[in-house]
Amino acid sequence: MTLTEAQVERYSRHILLQDVGGEGQEKILNAKVLVIGAGGLGSPIALYLAAAGVGTIGIIDGDVVDVSNLQRQVIHFTPDVGVPKVESAKNKIQEINPDVNVVTYQDIVHSKNILDVIKDYDFVVDGTDNFAAKFLINDACVIAGKPYSHGGILRFDGQTMTHVPGEACYRCVFKQPPPANAVPTCSQAGVLGAVAGMLGTIQAAEVLKYIIGVGDLLVNRLLIFDAKSMKFRTSNFKKNPNCPVCGENPTVTELVDGEQAVCDLKV
């Protein structure tokens, strides 16, 4: 594959980077990334990946745009209220970058469809708003051997980690979902819109680093930040040999749907 003149121009600021160059850009153009959730996190993730020229972006989300989404879900605009989120997102992506092939799934992820959806992608990004989905994505990616980026936000806080096959997974750190109502949902607690943007762009950067094979991913590390004090820290952790999904004697061998209440506010 050779870059066209228009592509050289469009991606010149990537090509200039010593770690990217034309070869790195070609890797980006050939990459396939699945974004799960087209909400607060999915919006910046999809926008930056599209602008960067990721060749195929899959988006899965079952919701339609609600007016309360617009405070942080920046891929959707006011006239999109009532439109399926995947449709709205696809339109914006194509306006930003016609190079991108967008594949949409107007559905939620569940134990029956997730393996089938993720199988075509090189990398999966978790932009969901509930623990059940987060554990489901983790388990599916471990079982299918897919790298993925975990992300979560609440109030002023965000956390993210990156999993690659063979290294620690989300369950190595958090063994199982918290009991229902133990963690406040976003409707009770709220979230600062910009925090979604902060975390989503961090996840997008991890995706691009993974694709071009540069730098140190957040593997075996959990990045946590508090936007109120604007303090960031990373905690190192190891792959847990007793992990229920990626440990030596896994107990989670097939996927089940959790019963966690979906956040009313829709992150």
């Binding site: 870059l3 050289v8 010149s12 090509i15 200039l16 160059g21 034309g22």
Partner: peptide, 10 residues
């Protein structure tokens, strides 16, 4: 600049 360098690099 910087397209001349971008092209050189490619």
């Amino acid at each position: 600049c910087p397209m001349n360098f971008v092209k050189t690099k490619l």
